[in-house]
Design a protein around this nucleic acid. Structure first.
Lengths: 210, 210
DNA sequence: CAATTTTTTGACCGAATGGACAAACGTTAG
DNA sequence: CTAACGTTTGTCCATTCGGTCAAAAAATTG
């Protein structure tokens, strides 16, 4: 008597749904929505296509579930940006957190990038609603820092964009970064280099003028 | 007796191929390679599918032609970065040129982003060859500026990445930028704001320490 | 164990897709 | 006008894809 799609009731259903979402994240993030097939996801999840469709009735349902989860964790770092504490310290840790997310959750970053690239057909309302509100709110915080002379005066929105762009670049354009840097700097060296550079760029670039 | 695919010989063939490539750029850049269909491209080009296939035998041929052209124009700004002239001026105009390209050729940017996101299956050799060489060469130029005390010491590769990331962001994530900024700042206001912000960020952030 | 419910699968379907082909159409040169 | 060549299209085909369905297999419950 529940919804026609099996809701995560039994233990086995919850587990299988997780397996599917994990597999779908892998597939969607590298092939995009239209470029991914249910068969691919099913194979990556180690089950047959009809079996997968028993847990998610439509391909879109998987994608939608994935996107909803994503956005929660994705915006968490920005939500933590607060005006309790030194502005420079706040910014530094925001940048670092975003960079860590690019390192630890590159597939989520690519999934998001794919969606935006295609014109954000499925999450436009969220961008214009939830996201815009959050960014506007944080832009106000940053403006406060500027008025207090704690950081240089500049456009807070574009500041946030540039932090997004630079950090997510290491997830979305990973193959290009690897190709250019070569196999030399393997492992975490690359991450630390990027962190050091970005800290310097943003913290020096935003030093108050007097 | 020429190649089996009609090479751009007659005037009409050159024209039609251009029409097709223009249409394909539009379609590929918003739907990705796998997400685009020959029918879509044909319709956008105002011709039937078999007619399109008369000029390009396979879907991949269109994409390949597009990617080759793209890379030439895409790397042009970086090639112009030279050590004849003031480093700060050089950097400023490089940033501006890249930003102008994001504004004037967003589809090309998205086409490239799509390809990289999918793991760059078709242009990997170019990334590891041509691109890496060019970047290494320009990194050397930038290092020279650092040694001469003209700009702050930092990692030149990551500097280049961050310029790419921030400027291309305005093309690749355009819908997100629009959604967050709202309809207010329409027209070129947005572009000028971004240019001002990025100039400030990079030029202040790279000011030599003494 | 038997009854009932949940999970899994093989077979199937209609639509979309990349591509082939031969016939028709148009254009131009002799 | 006609032969030759370049261009266009309708039709067709094999494959892939998203999704259905009934029936088998497990698991759960009494």
């Amino acid at each position: 008597m529940e919804g026609s799609t099996p809701r995560g009731r039994t233990r086995i259903q919850k587990e299988k749904r997780e397996v599917i979402l994990e597999a779908a994240l892998e597939v969607f993030s590298t092939n995009g929505f239209r470029g991914s097939t249910i068969d691919q996801i099913a194979e990556a999840a180690g089950m047959s296509k009809p079996n997968l469709l028993y847990y998610f009735r439509r391909k879109e349902d998987i994608h939608e579930t994935l996107m909803h989860r994503l956005l929660d964790t994705w915006l968490a770092p920005l939500k933590e940006l607060d005006n309790i504490g030194d502005p420079m310290t706040e910014l530094r840790s925001y940048i670092r957190r975003k960079l860590e997310m690019a390192r630890d959750y590159p597939r989520e970053s690519r999934l998001f990038a794919n969606e935006i690239l295609q014109g954000a057909p499925r999450i436009m309302p969220m961008l214009e609603g939830e996201l815009k509100e959050l960014v506007d709110e944080k832009a106000e915080v940053i403006k406060g820092w500027m008025r207090a002379g704690k950081i240089a005066r500049t456009d807070p929105w574009h500041l946030i964009f540039s932090i997004w762009a630079t950090t997510q670049h290491y997830a979305d354009f990973d193959v290009q970064v690897r190709a250019v840097l070569g196999p030399d700097r393997g492992g975490d060296g690359r991450f630390e280099d990027a962190a050091r550079f970005l800290e310097q760029l943003f913290l020096e670039g935003l030093k108050p003028k007097d």
